[in-house]
């Protein structure tokens, strides 16, 4: 008598061992690939690539100024680097995030009001300011953080408008103010500095021929992240003195408050001239990394403009007036 095993599984239905192991390996490969992709996704989410290059209008009839000779032998920093590595805390404290955060910033219509201790206070529309002769000025820019660029600015001497509004004799300083619109500048909430951003110069610094109001770079109007539509450029001072998106200029008889000095008076002075001999309390200012270079180069006194500006500070203790 044959005893039949109940519910016998046909040997053909048993998954062969090698197939079982293959399936297991297949699933494992899937899990490995899946988790790797997920990790890569998280990394990319936290480190997004830069946005597409911004396109702004060309500036016509740019005059090449004589002053450009002083840096014409230096290689220009690329447009991509200049427009994707910005300190503009109203938009973001991450230099690589500013370009995207400022993409939709509205710069038209725009006015700059010049007032205070002046004979003829005046409000300039951005169209009026673009009518002044626009010069190209190739300047080094040295950030207080220890990096630098060479930027072909377009603009005109600040002196041009100061002469138009005629400062009174008692005017000794010039104060500047950036637009602050929390609706457009939402990331500024976490910046840790006060807004609106304010800056200031001594009147003689403001009248110096190297001091310009920039309206563009690389022959085009300023991209938003670089301070559109108009910004100050003072090449012998740390970058934060070169205030962006200016809406107000005021002539005063007392030294005006400045944003970074308010935030940390022992770290950022009113003058903030580039000076390799006076360190920031937390890091050295003796060297800098030129963007696109790997090593560090020596920082120059007054950012290399000593010949032009050192006389403004004759007899001053630059360690005290940092």
């Amino acid at each position: 008598m044959v005893i039949k095993k109940p519910n016998e599984i046909k040997s053909s239905e048993i998954t062969p061992e090698d197939v079982y192991l293959n399936r297991r390996n297949f699933i494992r490969a899937g899990v490995l690939a899946g988790t790797t992709l997920a990790t890569a996704g998280v990394y990319k989410f936290l480190n997004p690539p830069p946005p597409k290059e911004v396109k702004t209008a060309e500036i016509n009839d740019i005059v090449k100024a004589n002053e450009t000779d002083i840096t014409s032998n230096e290689e220009l920093t690329s447009f991509a680097d200049i427009t994707n590595y910005n300190n503009f805390y109203e938009f973001s404290t991450s230099k690589t995030a500013v370009a995207r955060a400022a993409e939709d910033f509205v710069t038209r219509p725009w006015t700059v009001s010049v007032e205070g201790l002046v004979q003829k206070p005046q409000t300039f529309g951005i169209e009026d300011l673009l009518k002044f002769t626009q010069e190209e000025r190739i300047y080094r820019l040295r950030c207080v953080e220890g990096w630098s660029m060479v930027i072909p600015w377009v603009g005109f001497p600040l002196k041009t408008i100061l002469e138009k509004i005629e400062p009174l004799g008692k005017a000794k300083f010039v104060a500047f103010q950036t637009l602050y619109d929390p609706k457009q500048m939402q990331l500024g909430l976490f910046a840790g500095i006060q807004f609106p951003y304010v800056e200031g110069l001594r009147l003689d610094e403001a009248l110096h021929p190297l001091t310009i109001l920039a309206t563009g770079l690389y022959g085009k109007q300023l991209p938003n992240q670089n301070g559109a539509p108009i910004r100050l450029v003072v090449p012998w001072k740390y970058g934060f003195k070169s205030i962006k998106a200016i809406v107000k200029i005021t002539l005063t008889d007392t030294q005006p408050p400045t944003t970074w000095n308010i935030a940390a008076p022992n770290e950022y002075g009113f003058y903030s001239n580039v000076n390799p001999n006076v360190d920031h309390p937390r890091w050295s200012q003796a060297t800098e990394r030129r963007i696109s270079e790997v090593g560090r180069r020596k920082t120059l006194m007054f950012n290399g403009y000593a010949e032009e500006v050192a006389k403004l500070y004759d007899g001053m203790d630059l360690k005290k007036f940092f």
């Binding site: 790797t36 890569a40 990319k44 590595y85 230099k95 690589t96 990096w147």
Partner: peptide, 21 residues
């Protein structure tokens, strides 16, 4: 993975203006 992506981005010069930083 983070190191691989850092190396990849460095090779394609996608670490931004200041890759060392």
């Amino acid at each position: 993975v983070p190191l691989a992506l850092l190396a990849w981005d460095a090779y394609w010069q996608k670490l931004g203006a200041n890759p060392i930083e």
